[in-house]
Design a binder for these strands. Structure first.
Lengths: 203, 203
DNA sequence: ATTTAGTTTAACCGTTTGGTTAACAAAAGT
DNA sequence: ACTTTTGTTAACCAAACGGTTAAACTAAAT
């Protein structure tokens, strides 16, 4: 069991690295731990990815490419703002339940090293808000929406959807709920949040 | 040049530790780095705080006690929901500009070790949402507010205020602004966010 | 059958890390 | 005056860490 243009090992490594890095972060992760989880020798990590930094970047890029399509649900389709909000909100919450560590991981590591965002943007995953801003301006002028800047609305949408998951331990402490209670609360938010936003902006 | 009933050294250590830990997190911080910043020998860290973990906990507790009064602006005063929202929003944004790493630090480390919240709650810093919930229910019944659960409203208020700072690098990448542009946007939010919330909930 | 090239491993290496120790210096206590 | 206690330092230590090496192994090409 050894030789054959083996993309399998490389993928096993990336998967193990994804688990460890997303759970413990760059600084908290240990190469040995990743190797153990992948069930291979530590030297293989370096054989395929040279060093910890590059392995980490591979994980980070993949994580970001998983998240990006979710955000493009708001930014780059042609529906109305109301539809964008409804669509994104219900979608995103389902998404996070599938990938619990992902939003936190991205935010945490982006704070540790803000330059990563540049490497991402080079890599053709451009996240551009212009189209969204034009649509907001249009609907404001048409009287559909109350006056609001596109940037602020976009930040608000992200905040209401992403924050509760990023700050989960804090929220749980306040709400005084167990995991099940927290998830029920999040389930409610699939409609609650979009109603909240739409009430805030619609004329 | 050595001896004198010195509470000064202990405080210098805590201050240096605060800077390093809040900026780099538990895993990323180095004891030597903290000692260097405090301008003392590394052994002193252990003399006063025994080990890294305890030094970290001292920093974390202090950080949390700095944040808690801000949150009590919503939870434990007798004003109307509208006043709570206006008050907290303008206050909090000024607060974060003074303590840029603080919210991020707390959220990040609480995710790394959710049990910290227990140590905090033992320590008499109870953060209880009950009073807030009662007030929301009251104003809903009086017809001042649209129907909304206290928990959800509280999460929304936190989210809209805290998120943009926690996700600063991400937001900056979207908005395509430099630091100055970001701060202007946050300055706008002092009123923008409370208007947004009030429009969403008021009858 | 032998070479060749890619894959995998055990052992190793230098450095960094959190933590300890022993000696020392200045107050405080007697 | 002396002893004891407290604060401080330089030197040290074992363990953990990221990374390397050289050799073994495997399957395909010649």
């Amino acid at each position: 069991m050894a030789k054959k243009r083996d993309e399998n090992t490389e993928l096993q490594i990336l998967n193990a690295a994804k688990n460890i890095f997303q759970y413990k972060g760059m600084d908290g992760a240990r190469m040995q731990e990743i190797a153990d989880l992948a069930g291979i020798n530590k030297a293989m990590l370096h054989y395929y990815y040279r060093n910890k930094q590059l392995l980490f970047e591979a994980v980070f890029k993949q994580a970001f490419s998983t998240l990006a399509p979710q955000l493009n649900l708001i930014l780059n389709n042609d529906s109305s703002i109301e539809d964008k909000v409804k669509n994104f909100t219900s979608n995103y919450i389902s998404f996070v339940i599938k990938h619990p560590y992902l939003p936190n991981f991205i935010i945490q590591e982006l704070n540790r090293n803000p330059d990563f965002i540049l490497k991402i943007q080079e890599n053709s995953l451009l996240l551009n808000i212009d189209k969204f801003k034009k649509r907001v301006l249009l609907e404001v002028n048409q009287g559909i929406l109350k006056p609001i800047k596109g940037e602020q609305l976009f930040i608000n949408i992200l905040a209401l959807n992403i924050f509760p998951f990023v700050a989960k331990p804090l929220v749980k402490a306040f709400i005084n709920e167990n995991d099940k209670g927290f998830e029920e609360l999040m389930e409610q938010r699939k409609t609650e949040v979009s109603d909240f936003i739409i009430q805030a902006i619609k004329n």
